[in-house]
Design a protein around this nucleic acid. Structure first.
Lengths: 346, 346
DNA sequence: TTTCTTTCCGAAATCGGTTACGTTATCGAT
DNA sequence: ATCGATAACGTAACCGATTTCGGAAAGAAA
């Protein structure tokens, strides 16, 4: 079946496309009779406006581009889900791309998105990304960009992130509240701002509780993997005075550490308490269940989309786009791995 | 900055847009001098063709729509990743939508995708979906549709699925090969074809090894959750002659079962062996590590995209689109939970 | 009868490209 | 001088809609 156009309707009725167009959009200066005729033949021909023609005329793509380092990562899947729900509710669609944590590919992908036509971009920077000229170039062409999760201060754009500092602080405070005084941190690499914030939250909590910062309790992961958690936990156990609790920069590191602790004959949480970060679904399935800090992925996606759509609208209205910087709270989810047994307990 | 058009270049050089267009596309009947002039001023003005104008003229959106029940599900994230990689390599983009396992929303979403403009659709049906008229309607408008994972025989379309039968057969055969004779199956609900195939594979393996089918060893999950696995495992243990091994329709059910077994004082795999299906990442993190059947999600995405892009091309060439039906092998990943200890072992 | 409103619709420009077709200029061949 | 071929570019239709402007017809007011 060939798709019907305004011309088909017009020819069937012996009128012009202009009249048909206005009849379909319920303009006041079209008679009720013609409106009815147009509507019924439009129905009969299964007419639907051609999306490209409308968009070309309206100069609106009705599409936002999304760039994440890795679609498969559960956190990003959450974010994407939030984005899709918000933008679809406003008649927009989502074009998805991944940078594979590569700076080069991020550049390629953002340019492809601009070339293919989007009204705005939601970007989580790759770990490799330092310079953001490729994004500034997009802004120069009136393409609004909103950064989320992995952001950059080098770009004048709206941002939405998790409060990593507060999340880390709360996690460590949760440990300290239970009376632990020797709390280690398996931190992430220096670069992504997120992991630095988590480290800062760790330090701040120690300070707030009047505890000394002990450098030997802080080990820096590079790949942030299960294997690193495993190795570093063993290293901590080998200390003359091993820690009573561990705050890991990520769940995979935490789980690796728990595995190492168990293999070394330590019980979790009785001998060593552990808490991770990100609250992956696996945390609820492990034994013991793993405490973690939940990042509001879905909400990050929602809020970032809302900011972007607002900026898109402002640009259409010839207003200068306003930038906002949102910091969403992380939530400590206390499970078995970080619960200190009561002194008098069984 | 305003984006440059062909007219801007043409006016700057005192020629027409037609000449500029052809110069940029390196037509033979444009002089080298004009080509050079056009190219340099195009460069100077940062010219880029307007995507909508090109697409309207070419009647190609360069976009494929993807509908999955749930973006957050790791299997679908894998599939999507495969899709994105393939279609981007061919200059297409991916518009993503989710049906939330709702028939109504699936209809809405597919119609929205058609309305917004896509060259083809990759769809995994929701669990609720039985009728597929909404998809047949799309085909009637020359919009090719490829189904993957959850498919329907009611639609004349290409399909790409996991070989659930073979995967289940192999998983059960793996158990039987180790000498187990009493193997239970926690099966899925009747409707999705996938879980039926897994059940069939279970039965076929029993038959192939000359073992009787014992109805009391087969329990049917409805929600296919951790909790159901937990409950049904307890039920199996209460049998006068409990099974020696369990094949679960899904990893979450398998993990729930393992939890129940442990709580009942049974050791996995020494007392009861367990194997799941889907090979989620958590399988490698649990203790014991969980055996499972890996579905080739990324490959399903790749192959489905390839089929769709082929059909899109065939339609452009006025050829009748050929449909293919791909069945990709599942792979048993043997880990600790299903390894029977050697009789003479420690 | 003239003029002024309304009502209702068509003509045409526009969005930004692509491309079939036509035109002009130039040169060699006849 | 005439014809044909070729090179190089312009004209205009086209993709499918939207929207400004304007105009014909009919009725109302003068």
């Amino acid at each position: 079946m060939k798709r019907a156009t305004l011309r088909d309707i017009a020819q069937a009725l012996g009128i012009t496309v202009a009249t048909v167009s206005r009849a379909l959009k319920d303009y006041p200066d079209i008679s009720a009779a013609t409106k009815l005729a147009v509507l019924t033949t439009a129905e009969r021909l299964h007419y639907a406006p051609h999306p490209l023609a409308v968009k070309l005329r309206q100069k609106a793509y009705k599409v936002v581009g999304v760039v994440v380092p890795d679609i498969v990562h559960p956190f990003f899947a959450d974010v994407i889900s939030g984005i899709v729900d918000v933008v679809e509710a406003l008649g927009y669609h989502v074009i998805l791309s991944q940078s594979n944590e590569s700076y080069e590919k991020e550049i390629r992908v953002t340019q492809m998105l601009q070339a293919t036509g989007v009204d705005g971009l939601l970007v989580c920077l790759s770990n490799e990304t330092v310079a953001v000229d490729h994004l500034r170039a997009l802004q120069d062409y009136n393409l609004p960009v909103v950064l989320f999760d992995k952001i950059s201060s080098g770009l004048d754009a709206s941002t939405v992130v998790t409060n990593d500092f507060q999340g880390a602080y709360d996690a460590v405070a949760h440990l300290l509240d239970q009376g632990y005084t020797r709390v280690a941190h398996l931190k992430g690499p220096a670069h992504p701002e997120n992991t630095r914030q988590r480290f800062a939250g760790y330090q701040a909590a120690l300070a707030a509780y009047g505890l000394p910062f002990r450098p030997e309790y802080v080990l820096e992961c590079q790949a942030v993997t299960h294997a690193e958690g495993f190795a570093f936990a063993q290293q901590l156990l080998a200390l003359p005075e091993p820690p009573q609790a561990i705050f890991a920069v990520t769940d995979s590191v935490a789980i690796g550490a728990i595995t190492a602790l168990k293999q070394a004959g330590r019980r979790v949480p009785q001998d060593v308490a552990v808490i991770g970060f990100s609250d992956w679904a696996v945390c609820q399935l492990l034994e013991p269940t793993v405490s973690s800090v939940a990042q509001p992925g879905y909400d990050i996606g929602r809020r970032a989309s809302e900011l972007l759509l607002r900026e898109i609208q402002q640009l259409r209205d010839e207003q200068p786009p306003e930038h906002s910087h949102l910091v969403l709270d992380a939530t400590v989810r206390v499970r078995q791995s970080s619960q200190r047994p009561l002194p008098g307990g069984a």
